[in-house]
């Protein structure tokens, strides 16, 4: 091709390039691209699909089990929180679905995204080109963490929305009774559901930071995902062993189910705040560790 053809666009580009100072929104281009790239992957879509399917399964199971008039949960108090109330009010399916997915499905999905964040790029070799672009190590890490947190919110909202739709289709809606026995309007119930979804999303901050840190340790995306999910399972098991009660308050999953306290009237805040503090602590510790590791790492992949 002739040089004349190249000249026009490159002259245009040169004008922009001549400045070469990043604008105030310098980091948003990468973040937007990262979000779009993550959400376009089949893997992400499949994870969200699985999460959306959980409320559908729970809803149908409850519907079938209670079709003869008996109450859900077999009367023995088994099953996720709030499951017995679903037949009276479809909105409770939102709470049940979140309670059912928070211990495992949601953090596993977050672990996959977080674990793959840096290690996946290293594995594909794209990390070196992002850094040579130059994305900047701190900027890239912040972008990856922000994207993982965005995924936490999106994943939680997918579960909540799917549950709300299934609940509305299969069960009656209306006023609801809090754990404390008081009645609140459906509108206020919806507000609480949204609040609970946000608290559940915030509960995943710790896993996200942990996964990101693991991701900076290896060049294998699969290894990072497996390690993160493995740590998640280990902590969940250790949290069940009574002899370890001294250290259990420091497990990131220890206060997860405290979101149910938002359904009390008045709301019981103690464990909710402890949960958020703990998540903040994990984000600070593992975020700093990830930063220290990633900014000093030799990129050989």
């Amino acid at each position: 091709m002739s040089r004349a053809e190249v000249a026009e666009p490159s002259a245009e580009a040169a004008e922009a390039v001549g400045v070469r100072t990043p604008g105030p929104l310098w980091t948003l281009g990468l973040l937007r691209n990262e979000l779009a790239t993550t959400l376009r992957r089949w893997r992400t879509i499949a994870l969200l699909g699985v999460l959306a399917a959980v409320p559908v399964l729970v809803g149908i199971a409850v519907k079938i089990e209670t079709s003869d008039g008996s109450s859900a949960g077999g009367g023995g108090g088994e099953g996720p929180a709030f499951i017995a109330q679903i037949t009276n009010n479809g909105l409770f399916l939102v709470f049940t679905a979140l309670a059912a997915t928070l211990p495992f499905f949601l953090p596993m999905a977050v672990g996959v995204i977080a674990g793959d964040a840096i290690a996946g790029e290293a594995n594909a070799g794209t990390l070196r080109y992002l850094l040579v672009a130059p994305a900047g190590r701190t900027r890239l890490l912040l972008t990856k963490y922000a994207t993982t947190l965005a995924f936490c919110v999106i994943a939680t909202l997918v579960v909540a929305t799917s549950a709300l739709i299934v609940g509305a289709l299969l069960f009656p809606l209306g006023e609801l009774t809090t754990i404390s026995g008081t009645r609140i309007s459906f509108g206020e119930g919806l507000g609480r559901a949204l609040l609970i979804a946000l608290v559940v999303a915030a509960s995943l901050i710790g896993v996200a930071a942990l996964g990101l840190f693991v991701s900076t340790l290896t060049n294998s995306g699969i290894a990072a995902m497996a390690t993160t999910v493995g740590l998640l399972i280990t902590v969940q098991i250790l949290d069940q062993i009574p002899q370890l009660h001294a250290i259990q308050p420091y497990f990131f999953s220890h206060y997860w189910l405290s979101f149910a306290d938002l359904m009390r009237d008045p709301v019981y805040w103690d464990d909710l705040i402890r949960n958020l503090e703990l998540q903040g602590l994990y984000a600070a510790v593992f975020g700093a560790a990830a930063w220290a590791r990633f900014t000093a790492k030799d990129i050989t992949a």
């Binding site: 922009a16 281009g29 672009a133 130059p134 900047g136």
Partner: peptide
């Protein structure tokens, strides 16, 4: 994607 990684790219 690579271009958006460069903060100086317009």
């Amino acid at each position: 994607r690579y271009d958006s990684a460069d903060p100086t790219a317009d």
